[in-house]
Design a protein around this nucleic acid. Structure first.
Length: 272
DNA sequence: CAACGGACCTGCCTGC
DNA sequence: TGCAGGCAGGTCCGTT
């Protein structure tokens, strides 16, 4: 169940395994993902060679020269490169068979993920065109958050999880970043100062960067391209720690509340 | 516009 | 042991 660090971990793992490989076959076992898998995906991909694996927000972009396979892992998706004869398990919906006897295998029990094709610049695809800046890129900074939040009464946690504001900040890392920045997740986004957004922008970069360095966070089932978990869970300061002592102040207890229909974790003492 | 709830799914855990 | 209920890391879409 990936946020940006898990998707980036997957991308970094896949890139060297896929670049230069030619697609010899495609097997679609289940078309009913978030959007239907294109009927002609097999015919479209066969014979093409993968040049690189990119990422925009949580979308993986498999560049096949003349077009791009857009993959999204949804809540429960994993991508792995396995030998061609590897036994199938439940919810192995899609195989991209590669020349070197290996298969890029997409598994997604909940089917919130996606596999789409675009022949144009993927940045112009409707799903990507309106997205906010990358949190680890130069276009993301406190001024951006400040300007975009003026007049908005929604909780700041909801605000930073809006992909049209900034991409890649999911439910775990939103709680973590707000904790690190000392900001209460329910505070109205439009009533936060530029100075505090400086702290928040820095916290988002720090938390996401550290999580990528740790290979992502594994709670239940995230695994990388080799089927291995990430190690950031041990670094979490707030998420999933309801009732436990705050690791920052050592005095208060981490609270869990639902904000914008998502479980949120924070320290009522450190976060205001 | 912004905000909110519902929708899409399966698996896993809890409590009766 | 069985079963209902709730919850899970995403995000689009329709309605106010």
């Amino acid at each position: 169940m990936p946020e940006l660090p898990e998707v980036e971990t997957t991308r970094r793992g896949l890139e060297p395994l896929l670049a230069g490989r030619t697609v010899t076959d495609v097997v679609v076992r289940e078309r009913r993902l978030r959007w239907p898998v294109p009927r002609d995906l097999r015919a479209t991909l066969r014979g093409r060679t993968i040049t690189r694996v990119g990422r925009r927000a949580k979308y993986l972009l498999v560049d096949l020269g003349g077009g791009t396979l857009i993959l999204h892992l949804g809540m429960s998706g994993t991508l792995r490169v396995v030998p061609k004869d590897t036994a199938l398990v439940a919810h192995d919906h899609l195989d991209v068979v590669l020349d070197a006897g290996q298969v890029l295998r997409f598994r997604d029990p909940r089917r919130f993920g996606a596999a789409l094709w675009t022949a144009k610049d993927p940045a112009e695809h409707p799903l990507l065109a309106e997205l906010g800046p990358e949190p680890l890129g130069n276009a993301f900074h406190a001024r951006h958050l400040f300007d975009r939040s003026r007049g908005r009464r929604a909780a700041v946690k909801t605000f930073v999880m809006d992909g049209h504001v900034v991409v890649g900040v999911g439910n775990i890392y939103a709680s973590e970043a707000l904790h690190l920045a000392g900001i209460h997740p329910r505070r109205a986004a439009g009533r936060i100062s530029l100075e505090r957004y400086e702290r928040l922008a820095g916290a988002i970069r720090t938390v996401l960067g550290n999580a990528i360095d740790a290979g992502g966070t594994t709670f239940r089932d995230f695994v990388n391209e080799l089927g291995r978990p990430g190690y950031f869970a041990r670094s979490l300061m707030a998420y999933d720690r309801a009732g436990e002592p705050c690791l920052t102040c050592g005095e208060a207890t981490i609270r869990q509340e639902v904000i914008g229909q998502r479980s949120s974790y924070f320290c009522p003492r450190c976060q205001r």
